[in-house]
């Protein structure tokens, strides 16, 4: 096995490069199944992180995991991002947190296991972190079943109102708050 290239922090200056117009709008516009997943990214002092970047990957509403190109679709004349074509479900989203450390994603509920995979990047974070936002508590989920109840809770998005879920991500816990469970794939 070849040794891998090490990770480095995304730093503070990715803003011109990585975020793209409508990066958090995975759902085709006007689709009545659209859900909103939103929340804050917080540090170990409970402060919101305004320079985090979240990426989302999920199965399509039919359970398909093949994704589709076109998340960053460009205008061939100007080169500017014009966004997804409103037909294909790319399964991929990218959202920078705002000045309040808040993000919002609009997508369709995944078919199959009801979770959206989340990858967190931030200034100060030397190696990205993976977690999952579960839109329910499926029976027999190998990850959820392996966790203590208080840890498991950090992965369950809270339904706030119809089709709106709240999912906060705490990079570090404190006396009053549980740290989000992060995942290792190896």
């Amino acid at each position: 096995m070849l040794p891998p290239t090490p990770s480095q922090t995304v730093g503070p200056f990715y803003g011109y490069a990585l975020p793209f117009a409508k990066g958090g709008e995975i759902a085709p516009p006007g689709d009545p199944r659209t859900i909103t997943l939103h929340g804050h990214v917080l540090d170990g002092a409970g402060q919101p992180i305004p320079d985090a970047l979240l990426e989302f990957w999920q199965a399509g509403p039919d359970g398909s995991r093949s994704g589709a190109p076109g998340s960053l679709r460009r205008d061939p004349t100007t080169g500017a991002v014009i966004g997804r074509d409103g037909v294909a479900f790319t399964g991929f989203g990218r959202v920078p947190t705002d000045a309040d450390g808040h993000y919002a994603l609009r997508t369709l509920p995944p078919g199959g296991p009801p979770y959206i995979s989340v990858c967190v990047f931030a200034r100060g974070l030397l190696h990205h972190l993976f977690t999952r936002a579960y839109l329910g508590e499926p029976e027999g989920d190998p990850l959820l079943d392996s966790l203590e109840p208080r840890d498991r809770k950090t992965l369950i998005a809270t339904p706030e109102r119809d089709r709106v879920y709240r999912f906060d991500i705490r990079l570090q816990g404190d006396e009053n708050h549980e740290e989000t469970v992060f995942l290792a794939f190896d």
Binding site: G44, P142, G173
Partner: peptide, 27 residues
Amino acid sequence: SSVLRHPKRPPVPVRDPEAVELTGPVF
């Protein structure tokens, strides 16, 4: 900047062969 932005607990291993993360976005 890493001091308040790193988890204090080790990540939880996922060894599920059906994990969605074993596939990924395409461009």
